[in-house]
Amino acid sequence: MGQKLIVGRYIPVDSFVHHLDSRAKLLATILYLVILFFANNWITYLILTLFVGLGIYLSGISFTYFLRGVRPMIWLITFTALLQMLFTSGPTMYFQFGFIYISKEGIQNGLFIFLRFVLIIFISTLLTLTTEALDLTDAIEFFLKPLKIFKFPVHEMTLMLALALRFVPTMMDEAEVIMNAQRARGVSFSEGPIMQRLKNLISLLIPLFISSYDRAPQLATAMEARGYQGGENRTKYRELTWKKIDTVVLLSFLVLFSTVYLLRG
């Protein structure tokens, strides 16, 4: 189960992208996603693709990981792109049959949408593969800090996020154990009519819920026993350090932003 899931995994490599500050990476990724929706012609898409390509190259992570990130989504992406291709009419028509059109603009739009999805997945995979979950949580905490004046519980939210991330692999292991235990008792999760399969899922979900309810007070007790009293007066072990190179990277994304904005059709 864990092997197939690429999004949310971290791959430790000693690379340029890995050493960037998580705040810079998070900002840059968000900025990139915004630019992506401004792009609307070949030259802008080319620039954006090259930029991601450079990022992937600098991350030192094999390209196959990124392809594996796209794989579970590929049918959805192709379907969306095909819909665009088939149902967009334009001035340069090649073919028309009833409500199905194939036009130059349609094909182009379809390809752009395909590319846009792939680039979104690439850049977010790049972020999660090169940034530890906790560093990412720290970055989110940093950006949410201003909300404290509105009494928003920033520390509590980020602690919840960090604990949730910490327990993902534990719960996945547990889900697998429960699934196997139920299979051993004759429950099938992958065969039979759809309603039956959904019903069978209950035998996985209920034990999983109950064990989480069981886990929560134990964790809370352990935290309290170690002196956890909430967010006040806490020091932090993890430290984010903003270096010059982070500013440079962020600036380059701003340059990218303005270039794409100017070149769009």
Binding site: A133, L134, R215, Q218, L219, R226, Y237
Partner: peptide
């Protein structure tokens, strides 16, 4: 498992 709070040993 239920008392491990940090996401790494040092944490």
């Amino acid at each position: 498992d239920n008392q491990f709070v940090g996401s790494t040993v040092a944490d």
